Every structure is written in structure tokens, then in C-alpha cells.
Amino acid sequence: MVEITASDIFGIGQMDKISISLALLGLLCLYLSALAVYWDSVKFFTFSLLVGILSLIAWVFIPSSQTLAAMKVLPAVVNNQRIQGVAENALELTEQFLQDKLESLMSKEKSGAEK
């Protein structure tokens, strides 16, 4: 079974901040690369463009907090045998209840037709 630790919860909570930071870093580096063209600095342009592109690519592929929470929690819930047992028991109780109601309705109809 998958355990969710305090560090997992903290990491999930920080994903949105990391995503925003990567987006801002990417935009800043792209701005700096435009300035490097103005300053005629090839090395600075190459470095800032490379860092900007890599940070924007990382920003695209970093999941949001909600997505990461779903990726962590849903398998733990779906694969939990206790929860599956509860669902099976609830289904059996529902089927039994409906069967009892159907039988009582049919017996009332028969007794009403005999009168």
C-alpha cells in the first residue's frame, strides 16, 4: 500500500510555487537574452536563452498540486482492499434491500388481485 508522508504533502503543496518560479525564471531569461543581443554578448545570450528555454520546458511538464495529489492519493484509495470490501458490502446490502422491496410489492399486488 502507498503511504503518504508529511514530506509528500509538503512537496505537493509546493508544486504551484515551483511552477510559478520556473515560469518567471524562463521569462526573465528570455528578457535577458533580448538584452544580450542589444549588448552584443554572444555568451550571455546563449546562456540566458538556454536557461530560459529549459525552465519554460520544465514549467510545462511540472504537474500542478491538484494533479500530483491525484497521482498520489487515487492509487492508494483505489487499490485499498478495505475500501473495495466496503463497496462490495454496500452493493450486496443494496441488492438485498431492492429484492426485499420487490418481493413485498409483488405480494401486495397478489393479495390485492385476489380481493
Rank of each mutant, 00 (worst) to 15 (best):
M15H: 07
A87E: 13
S48M: 13
F47C: 11
F47M: 15
M1F: 09
T94H: 14
A23H: 03
E103Y: 02
I53H: 06
A113P: 03
L28F: 07
I4N: 01
L105A: 08
A23T: 03
S48P: 01
L22H: 01
Q84F: 04
S104M: 06
V86N: 10
F97W: 07
S64W: 10
S64P: 03
A76Y: 02
Q99V: 05
K101G: 13
L56T: 04
I20M: 03
K108I: 04
L28W: 01
F97C: 08
T5R: 11
I9V: 14
S104Y: 01
S7I: 11
L22V: 00
D16Q: 13
D16N: 12
Y31N: 05
Q14M: 15
S33A: 07
Y38S: 07
S64E: 10
A113R: 14
I12S: 04
M1C: 03
N80M: 05
D40G: 06
W39C: 10
K17Q: 11
L93G: 01
L98I: 04
L91F: 06
V51M: 13
P75S: 00
Q14I: 10
V86Q: 12
F47Q: 07
K43F: 12
S111I: 07
F61S: 02
E109Y: 14
Y31R: 04
V2I: 04
I83P: 08
T5W: 11
K17G: 12
L49R: 08
M15A: 14
Q81P: 00
K115C: 10
I12K: 04
G26P: 00
F61T: 07
E109I: 11
E3S: 06
L102S: 14
A36R: 02
N89C: 03
L49Q: 12
S107H: 14
A34N: 04
D16L: 13
L22G: 01
S111M: 08
L105I: 06
W59S: 02
L68M: 15
E3D: 05
Q99M: 09
N89A: 14
A23L: 09
D8S: 02
K101Q: 14
W59V: 07
V42S: 10
W59F: 12
K110Q: 14
A34L: 05
I4Y: 05
L50F: 08
L50H: 01
L32M: 07
M15L: 14
D8G: 04
F97D: 09
F45C: 10
F97E: 08
